[in-house]
Design a protein around this nucleic acid. Structure first.
Length: 561
RNA sequence: UGGCCUAUGGUGUAAUUGGCAACACUACUGGUUUUGGUCCAGUCAUUCUAGGUUCGAGUCCUAGUAGGCCAACCA
């Protein structure tokens, strides 16, 4: 396979170094830790592929852990969606965990910190605490409650837990250093009072731990060896380590946090807050709108899990800021679909062609290859008749020799069918072409082996027989944002760059073999692109999404003129 | 005016740790083709800048420059 030749990313270098010093291969354990407050997106896919990929590479377990410490934002719906997406991407977790599983343990440890004088109850408002925090260039001030006795702290913390106080009355803070260079070390809040039901623990708790007090400890409980997160958590590492210092025991593995740069993709946004705004403002139809960069959106759009995994593998992982061009994602889905998607013919912008020397009412079934890339895919029969549709763009009355398609006096081959010649066309008063009259060469049938059938004509067109054609809704998608970095402009809101023409619904004419197409089925509409059957599709009303167009060299040639 | 992180083609990642800057995408050429698809061949870099160490620097040293992160009872 040549897999060994692939160079290591910096995380793998770190692990290799650890393996040479104080870790054994059996120590390795990873986790993917989403907060269930939204849907997973293409950026998460990178993290998923990183963590689960490491698990595969080192034959190490990977947990799926929900970081569910904020009942105000988290919902079961998201938990289910996340599990579905990770599974769909092709990964299995060793065990399904929740930070909320550890609420009791976390509380017990917090009590230890209080007893050791490492944490105290602060009874100021959040505004007061913020005002004392200082700035990156100025030290903060100690809270007047910083030196409460252990007994008083214990009593108050106990009261917090028992629901004796209202939200905001008290918090538990770690006692570290209010003049620390790292703002996060200035007595960070560990617990807040929240009289809210949690999606799993319901009303068992009315105090909830914050991220910093939860994450490293959860890693420690699960004995995660390498806790990988994005770069914005780098300043948290010091606190992660400080909390661990308070409670790790020598005989257990001590997790380490390492950070990598979040992957950005051009012409889209990957921030839950912004994606949520797109959903709530109804720019898109939902989290799984095929234009969304969510895993569920990409899936509905027709992307394959394999193409997303390959994408994640090729962009790799590093520590510098990045914007990956969306064309790389498109490349990977084309690469995969080219191998696996059956070819069919569909006309999206129809122009009627009448074959004047073809017998009225006659019908013929022609043999078509299902996939030239895959012999095992076999063949199918498609109907041919006197009246067919071709694409409007495939006919011009006059054109230069660079135009390989149909023009008056010129010949083209109908894919899997005959060579036809355009003799005349009819137009309406506005000059729009309504119909093209052609003659066909009866001996030129594809695959017949005759000298005429082997003749080379420059152009080959796709087509459908009008009396046999199926109608279907076809949804054509364009980029959701017109700008490459919609959220990269200081003076502009990302919503300003929403592309108003990102969805175009049309009626297409489809070859009849598509009749039984089921939701999720993927096809190549020859010469047009890859399409899949949408969730909204029914046997009576077929609905297709365009996943991605084919590479279009002709469009580029035309653009230059 | 603090601390920390980062800098390699248009894009994303590599470089046996000091030894010929590589791979993929994009773009552009050409060839093949009953999909203007696929496939095949080719073209596109003063490694942020300036000094220094060295036979030799993307890699080490010094000084800059640019970008990012950090002041939620969010994660």
């Amino acid at each position: 396979m040549g897999e060994e030749e692939k160079s290591l990313n910096f995380i793998e270098h770190i692990i290799e170094d650890d393996l040479k010093s104080d870790y054994t291969k059996e120590d390795l354990r990873f986790r993917f830790p989403p907060e269930p407050n939204g849907y997973l997106h293409i950026g998460h896919a990178s993290s998923i592929c990183l963590n689960f990929g490491l698990g595969l590479r080192y034959d190490a377990p990977v947990n799926l852990r929900f970081d569910d410490t904020n009942p105000a934002k988290e919902e079961k719906e998201y938990v289910e969606a996340i599990k579905r997406d990770v599974k769909w991407l092709g990964f299995d977790w060793e065990s399904e965990r929740y930070a909320s599983d550890y609420f009791q343990q976390l509380y017990d440890w917090a009590v230890v910190l209080v007893q050791n004088g490492k944490a105290y109850v602060d009874s100021q408002s959040s505004e007061e605490i913020a005002a004392q925090k200082g700035t990156p260039t100025e030290p903060g001030m100690n809270s007047p409650f910083r030196n409460r006795s252990v007994e008083e702290n214990m009593e108050l913390f106990d009261g917090m837990k028992n629901g004796d106080f209202a939200e905001g009355d008290h918090v538990l803070r770690a006692k570290i250093d209010m003049s620390h260079n790292n703002m996060l070390m200035r007595d960070p809040v560990m617990y807040r009072i929240l009289h809210k039901a949690h999606h799993r623990t319901n009303t068992d708790w009315c105090i909830y731990p914050l991220y910093d007090w939860t994450h490293g400890e959860s890693d420690y409980i699960e004995q995660v060896s390498h806790s990988l997160c994005t770069l914005e958590f780098l300043p948290h590492r010091e606190l992660y380590d400080w909390f661990l210092d308070q409670l790790v025991s020598e005989d257990r593995l001590r997790p380490k946090q390492r950070e990598f740069a979040r992957r950005n993709v051009s012409h889209t946004v990957v921030s839950k807050r912004k994606l949520l705004k797109l959903v709530e403002s109804q720019v898109v139809s939902g989290w799984d709108d095929p234009r969304m960069p969510t895993i569920s959106g990409l899936r509905r759009r027709g992307y394959t899990a394999e193409s997303i995994r390959n994408f994640a593998d090729t962009i790799g992982i590093a520590k510098r800021d990045n914007v990956v061009d969306v064309s790389l994602l498109e490349f990977h889905v084309r690469e995969h679909l080219n191998k696996v998607a059956p070819r069919v013919m569909a006309v999206l912008n129809p122009l009627k062609v009448v074959i004047t020397n073809y017998e009225e009412g006659k019908e013929e079934w022609l043999t078509a290859e299902n996939n030239p890339e895959d012999e095992k895919a076999g063949t199918r029969e498609i109907p041919f008749s006197k009246e067919i549709y071709i694409e409007k763009e495939d006919f011009r009355e006059e054109a230069n020799r660079k135009f390989f398609r149909l023009k008056l006096g010129g010949e083209v081959r109908l894919k899997n069918g005959y060579i036809i010649k355009a003799n005349s066309c009819t137009k309406n008063d506005d000059g729009d072409i309504l119909e093209v009259q052609c003659t066909y060469d009866p001996k030129s049938k594809s695959g017949s082996g005759t000298a005429e059938s082997l003749r080379k004509v420059k152009g080959t067109l796709h087509w459908v027989s009008i009396p046999h054609a199926l109608k279907g809704e076809v949804r054509l998608y364009d980029r959701l944002f017109s700008d490459a970095t919609p959220d990269g402009h200081k003076d502009r809101d990302f919503m300003d760059f929403v592309n108003p023409n990102s969805l175009n619904k049309i009626t297409g004419f489809l070859e009849p073999s598509l009749k039984g197409a089921k939701s999720g089925d993927r096809f190549q509409f020859q010469r047009l692109g890859y399409f899949n059957v949408d969730l909204d599709s029914t046997p009576e009303n077929l609905v297709f999404n365009r996943t991605v167009t084919l590479r279009d060299t002709w469009a580029k040639i035309e653009q230059k003129n």
